[in-house]
Design a protein around this nucleic acid. Sequence first.
DNA 1: CGTATGCTTGAATCACGTCAACTGATGTGG
DNA 2: CCACATCAGTTGACGTGATTCAAGCATACG
Lengths: 276, 276
Amino acid sequence: MKSNDPTGTPPARQRPAIVMPSHVCGRGTLKEAHRCGMVREVCDALWARLDGACDGIRHLAPRETLSQAGDRLTHSALLLDGIMARYIAEPGRDRNNRLMVSIQVPGDFVDLHALPLRYLDHDVAALADCKIALFPHDALTGIMEQDAEHARMLWRLTMLDAAIHRHWIYRAGRLRALAAVADFICEMDLRLQACGKVRDNRVPLPMTSADLAEVSGLSTMHVGRVLRDLREANLCTIGDGVALIHDREGLRQLAGFDPSYMYQLAGQAEPTPPRG
Amino acid sequence: MKSNDPTGTPPARQRPAIVMPSHVCGRGTLKEAHRCGMVREVCDALWARLDGACDGIRHLAPRETLSQAGDRLTHSALLLDGIMARYIAEPGRDRNNRLMVSIQVPGDFVDLHALPLRYLDHDVAALADCKIALFPHDALTGIMEQDAEHARMLWRLTMLDAAIHRHWIYRAGRLRALAAVADFICEMDLRLQACGKVRDNRVPLPMTSADLAEVSGLSTMHVGRVLRDLREANLCTIGDGVALIHDREGLRQLAGFDPSYMYQLAGQAEPTPPRG
DNA sequence: CGTATGCTTGAATCACGTCAACTGATGTGG
DNA sequence: CCACATCAGTTGACGTGATTCAAGCATACG
């Protein structure tokens, strides 16, 4: 299967894009507990249809690769538990020079954009132990054909992803190291709150300094300095798979954080669009 | 109308989101010449439907704003001629600290993502004189309802946009000033080639150093230094609204440019996904 | 017990930002 | 016609934020 490859030799091309579900599935696979975070937006009817379309649950080990750039994909995955990341590694697939372009939390579709695109421009991998639900593209196409409102919602989910992409461009282009890391923590805080993972200001964040470097485009060592500064400023303590938020307001102020780019997740009422 | 406001006073909220078409339109508005660049992907049937759905052509002056973050949008626009940009300006709408998160060339839908999102997280403005075709969201929804294949194609167009977003994240996070600007030029070269705007290696690029600074997250003056370096390295000469490519291969090598993130636009055959 | 992995620290270097002054082209009103 | 303003581009000096390299030190794991 597509695990991380310690031999360093690139996996042969034409790797089987076939997914091996660990269970045979069908109606009743998706629990109400899985309807968290971004996927909370879908209506009951669509959720029921997705439940019927799901044809597998799969577990991923930490650092395990789900798909690579260029793989022909036949399924898309909803992240049920854990945390996953998407990487661009140009040129020549240099592992040490890749950048994280997206991160997914429970309730996110990890690679729904592969439905209209058929293959992706980036790699998808698990950061921690993960559980995903698999949906054949044929079944998703069927859902789109039967109800345009459902098609619009699936589209919308990928557009919320794109809105986050834009914010990441802004972060990388305009924010300094300290503000950039603070901004990322604020985003993860909010997104993990939305799927009920934050208790007592403890944000579960199974990422090393090296992971944060791949998010922010900084060097690992400078990330370490930034984390120390955030800790000494009594804003938050990051490490051991947890971000402990000491001063949420201070952290947001430092980052200049405005959550409106996350639309519903920011907790705003739809009819009154945010204004700066 | 929503022009750039020299008085400095922000336009009153609840600005009319109503678009004033300069012509009354209908079938026959879209010419075959407008089917260039990204929109070349749409099939004849969808193109005909879009033609029927178009309810206005609008001209924009350089620097004129089409819409601002938070505006409730009722139309989406296809760029027929000119060049447009999308900006994030946090916090507090500081014009001098905004970043360009996207750029649109003829054949791009400028704000199709507003259809599932209803309002946007960023501003949209013209860089040069522009001509856009307007499509009411209701009519686009009608197209989606009638043919799921068309819905999938509209979705796909926005996902190609998102793929470019991801590359911009990569550029901002991983590339140094020289490589980043070179990379941007390579992208514009390719995209403007795809809409037939490049003749004799002259890429029409109506952007100032300040615009390029807003693309790359650099200061205006450092952009100036980078442009000088590119010129003295005999790679390309940028200025006066034109990028003159002297050595396309050298430029791509400097940037580490791999166009596969632009999918069809990169000129690859669909059945053989690109591999690095 | 040795060997990764993850975090830390310090010093040297470099890339980029900032400030200020200057040029040349364009436009405007008297 | 000239005086003046504006804007795009350029240059040089200087400050600083981030990278890089090297070394040290835990913990976890074979």
